[in-house]
Design a binder for these strands. Structure first.
Length: 276
DNA sequence: GGCTTATCCTGGGCGC
DNA sequence: TGCGCCCAGGATAAGC
């Protein structure tokens, strides 16, 4: 599941391999994968001849900067992958969009579950008008997240802290895996009322969020089967996960059995002994 | 307004 | 072997 570290890793890979590349042709195999413009022919036409200027990230959104100040925005959601392939490479059965480049390379957008989306944002349009989700994003956890900000945003919130961490309007980029990992390292029980956290706990949580995301970026993201870096190589985070995906396994700290509950429709993994 | 739940989607795992 | 059911989850709409 691509979260901030995975998207950052993909952005970094694409930056190295895509900058200065010119779009030669575009094929859309699933119209649902293109959110804007809704007509796939128009989407393909708009991309033709554009040159990649840079690649950046905002939350879990990938932003590919193009010539003429246009942008191609991609959200990988659950199972999306962006891969650079050589000309004539075997097409994956889940290939949704194929962008062929003048150099012969191809940018493949593969997405088994068809939740991922692409938006073409022409220079005359506002990014936030077309990709509405971007306008409501909260702070970037690695650069702008302070404990005073988080304390303020959690104040009086009755919902579980796990749900608040998944709320992209508060912190952009945290998903299910890293929310569980951050709460474990902070020693915070995921069902705790968000507004009940003390200043010390919030401060610790900010530290663990940063720590978990930074480590995951270094390791190249998680290893879940749907996710790959731009060069097609799996990341390495999940092998070192503390609680995520370790239901009924021994806690790495106290040897208690890792527990699991459903919160906000998501599996939440935690250790009852370490997280009070 | 705050919060929870349903929906979208498809492959894999499991039980029968 | 084949079938049906359940699970995974990010964002958003709908409902309470």
């Amino acid at each position: 599941m691509p979260e901030l570290p995975e998207v950052e890793t993909v952005a970094s890979g694409l930056r190295q391999m895509l900058v200065s590349e010119e779009v030669a042709s575009v094929e859309v195999f699933r119209k649902e994968s293109v959110a804007y413009p809704s007509q796939r022919a128009k989407f393909c036409r708009m991309l033709l001849g554009k040159v990649v200027i840079g690649v950046s990230r905002r939350g879990k959104y990938l932003i590919i900067e193009l010539s003429d100040d246009d942008q191609l925005v991609v959200h990988l959601r659950m199972s999306g992958r962006l891969l650079i392939k050589e000309k004539g490479a075997v097409q994956d059965r889940f290939l949704r969009v194929c962008i062929k480049l003048q150099s012969g390379k191809e940018l493949h957008f593969e997405d088994m579950r068809v939740f991922g989306r692409m938006w073409y944002v022409p220079s005359q349009a506002q990014l936030t008008d077309i990709v509405s989700g971007i306008s409501t994003l909260g702070v970037e956890p690695l650069t702008d997240l302070s404990h005073s900000y988080l304390k303020k945003r959690l104040a009086r919130k009755k919902q579980p802290i796990k749900n608040a961490l998944l709320d992209q309007r508060i912190i952009a980029g945290i998903g299910n895996i890293y929310a569980d990992e951050s709460l474990f390292l902070a020693g915070i029980y995921p069902l705790r009322e968000a507004g009940s956290l003390s200043a010390r706990e919030v401060k610790r949580l900010v530290e663990t969020v940063r720590e978990v995301l930074s480590s995951a970026i270094v390791l190249g993201g998680s290893t879940l089967r749907d996710y790959r870096k731009a060069d097609g190589i799996n990341g390495n985070y999940q092998g070192s996960a503390w609680v995520y995906g370790r239901f009924k396994m021994e806690c790495r700290i106290c040897s208690s059995s890792i527990d699991r509950v459903k919160l906000a429709g998501r599996s939440t993994h935690f250790c009852r002994s370490c997280q009070k």
